[in-house]
Design a protein around this nucleic acid. Sequence first.
DNA 1: AATTGTACCTGTCAGC
DNA 2: TGCTGACAGGTACAAT
Length: 278
Amino acid sequence: MPELPEVETIRRDLADLVVGKMISHLVVADRRALEGFGPDGSRRRRVDPVAFEGRLKGRRVSGVGRRGKYLLLHLDDGASLLVHLRMTGRLVWGPPDLRARVQILFDDESNVLSFCDTRRFGEVWIAEDWREDPSIKALGPEPLEPLDADEWSRGLRRSSAKIQAALLDQKRMAGLGNIYVTEALWRAGIRPARRARTLRESDTNILLGHIRDVLQEGILHRGVSFRDYRDAQGNKGRAGERLAVYGKAGKPCPRCRATLQGAKVNGRGTVFCPRCQK
DNA sequence: AATTGTACCTGTCAGC
DNA sequence: TGCTGACAGGTACAAT
């Protein structure tokens, strides 16, 4: 569900809502939401909720960050609470929510931070140093920060994967998901099933520009609430109203009026225009 | 090594 | 109306 623009919207909301507040306690309704790492530092394991709460109690939130689709709640002792919302996760500031997998209560007692997640794919865990977390370390560059475009382009054009799959690979670039990849490929005039290695450098340069545009516009309009996504106050985003092709198979292409075609690329649904995407 | 398939869950919707 | 199957914004791990 939430891709970079959705997670970034939540990050900005939470920066205003919880920074400076002290965590008083946790309500863990679903212990499977809590994940951690074993002594070897690599394998994920479940965590004792009491120990988890003990680690957070009394800590103040010093800042809220984001890396790719990972949300980072930085604590005043240098550790961070990491959250990944996966497909259906929400992080909402408001009255206690009975469906929450985890609720974080703060010292001001006005509201609670509820982690709700119908499909239960999401995860919350603690990293003593978020930069050393294995999930974070595996990520490629941030698309909206300065990056070596030549290196990125060369890496992409060396890949034998389909371009849709290559862009969804978080090692290549962090934060893209199915919606924004589908939109960026349409803007760039590139078919999702085309092999990345058939692209020219001019193609990948244009593509990078469109990736940045769709992400910026997504943030500007507070994310796509196609189904489950809500911001940190529980409100829908408006970016879905502006999508050109995602979810619009069978409708006319906004550019050339040919009928948009739905397809599966490596198991993920996508949409493209058979006339103006090559 | 890199790419693709499968598993993890629950809810919704189209078709019968 | 109710059943069944396909599908949903993601990622870790297994298989190739």
